[in-house]
Each structure stands twice: as C-alpha cells, then as structure tokens.
C-alpha cells in the first residue's frame, strides 16, 4: 500500500495526464459526430488501401473475363450500328431486318500477313455457330476476311490480304459497285476493280461493303480512295483503297452471323438451276 502511495506521489502528474487524456478522447469519440465517423473511417482508409492493393494484384487474372465482356458489349453495339444502317436505308419499321445480323466475338489466335495468301485462325468454331462463308470484321470500321473452314473449336479465315479474296464493295453516297481484291503486297492497300468508268468517283471517297452478298451487311466501312486510274483499254476503274484498319495488328474479330443466309443462297441457287 505504501508503495502504491509512493508511486502515486512520484508519478501522479503523469498518471493524471494519461487519465485526463483518456477522458478527453473518450469525450471526443463519443460526443462528436465527425470524429466518430473518422474514427470508423480511418480504419476503413487502411482497409480500403489493402483492398485496392489486393484488387490491383488480382486485376490481371480478371483481365480475360473483362475482355470477354467488353467484346460481347462491342458486338452488341456494332450490331446496333448495322441495324441502324439498314433501318435508315431499306425497309423502315421492319423487325426482321433489325434481327438479320448478329455478331459473335472471337479472338485471333494465329495470323499471317507477309505471304501472298494470308490467313487467320479464330478461337471459336462450329460449336459456337461459325460456318464457312461467314464474314469476319474487326469492328464497324474494317473488314478482316471470310471464314473458309471450321472445326469444332477453331475457324480458318481467308484474310483480306489473299489473292482469292473477292468482296463486293461500293462507294459511299455514289452508285455502282465493284469488287475488292488484293493485288499488290502492301498490307494497308487494296484495289477496287470493275466499277464502270462512267460513275462519278473522287479521291477521298469512302469505300463501304455493298451488302450484295450474304457475308457482309451493307455499310461496313472499308477504306478511303487514295488514287483512281483507268487501265488502258479497260471499261472500268482500278481504284487504290487505303484500308481503315491495320490487319497486321488486329487481335479481336467479330464474325457476322446472317440469319437469312441459307434462305438467300437456296433461293439464288434455285434460280440458277432453272
């Protein structure tokens, strides 16, 4: 007991200081709203920092899922763009046209660009609804090619940069249509042939898909006209088109699913056989 009293005498001021500060802080935390909020918050700041660290660490593993969802979102947006193009230009108010095209997002897993006949491989196949003859685009701006062959899980695409490529194209706000081919070895330029030379066409015009096939809807932007020539003795232009998209760096692609393709091809074949 004596010791306790002696201790109190010796350290009384310090003890009193601690006691008074404890009283003060108890009052501060209990009676003041802001400090109470901050008291709870400060721990949250720490927790929040930890959470942020954790999420940055785990972000990389989520990137794949994130990419997939973005791809799906993009597919829907491009579908809408195509639908708008059609609802403006073709049959107003037709529901079937709006639903004609849908897009399947895919990833390009293999590509060549430096050969005379270039190819792509996509990471989805017939299991996902991909079939030979479907068009492949990079986005609303830019074609990629046409599916030539599919397996269960992969699809083989003939690139635009291929000597076999023939895509029906037209010039925006002009009449007449021609065929887009790849003649020179430049991966950024293609040639639009067989537009009759009486058509009015100028350098700088935009080349779009014509929609005269089951592969691509009308209005996918392809490129800009860079130069126009008329080969001697020919009745049509040879137009150099600079592509909007760079096929050497493309990583994702959308396959265009045309719900009425089979119907159209069947009908056209019947007419052909007669």
């Amino acid at each position: 007991m004596y010791n306790v009293i002696q201790l109190l005498i010796k350290y009384g001021a310090h003890i009193l200081f601690v006691v008074l500060e404890i009283i003060c802080f108890t009052l501060i935390v209990n009676k003041n709203d802001t400090q109470q909020a901050i008291f709870l918050n400060s721990s949250n700041v720490l927790a929040g920092k930890l959470e942020a660290q954790r999420s940055t660490l785990l972000e990389y593993s989520n990137l794949k899922n994130l990419n997939d969802s973005l791809l799906r979102e993009n597919a829907t947006l491009i579908e809408n763009l195509i639908s708008i193009e059609y609802s403006n230009e073709l049959i107003p108010g037709s529901d079937t046209v709006l639903a004609q095209y849908s897009l399947i997002p895919t990833k390009i897993i293999n590509s060549t660009i430096n050969q005379r006949n270039n190819h792509f491989t996509l990471n989805k196949g017939s299991r996902e609804g991909l079939y030979p003859g479907m068009g492949v685009i990079a986005s609303h701006i830019g074609l990629i090619g046409i599916i030539r062959n599919t397996s269960d899980n992969f699809a083989h695409v003939i690139s635009l940069l291929n000597s076999q490529t023939r895509i029906s194209c037209t010039v925006k706000n002009r009449t007449g249509h021609g065929t887009l081919v790849w003649e020179n070895a430049d991966p950024l330029r293609m040639t639009l042939i067989s537009i009759p030379k009486h058509e009015q066409i100028e350098v700088g015009d935009t080349v779009i898909t014509s929609g005269y096939s089951t592969m691509f809807p009308r209005g996918i932007l392809v490129g800009k006209i860079e130069s126009i020539k008329v080969p001697p003795g020919s009745n049509s232009y040879a137009i150099t088109v600079k592509l909007f998209n760079d096929l050497t760096s493309v990583k994702y692609a959308y396959v265009i699913q045309n719900r009425f393709a089979a119907e159209q091809i069947k009908l056209e074949n019947e007419v052909g056989h007669e």
Partner: peptide, 27 residues
Amino acid sequence: RMVLLLVAFILGIGLDVFYDSLGIHAA
C-alpha cells in the same frame, strides 16, 4: 504539474462547450 493539468482540463472543457467540440481543446 497536477495543478497545471487540472486547470488545463477544466479550461479546455469550458472552451469545448462553447466550440461544440467536446474534448478537443481539452485534450
């Protein structure tokens, strides 16, 4: 020191009553 601390505490609490910040000035 004891007197100092007590005076400080009482004065602080008195100020806190008027500042609506119970305990801050006192602490």
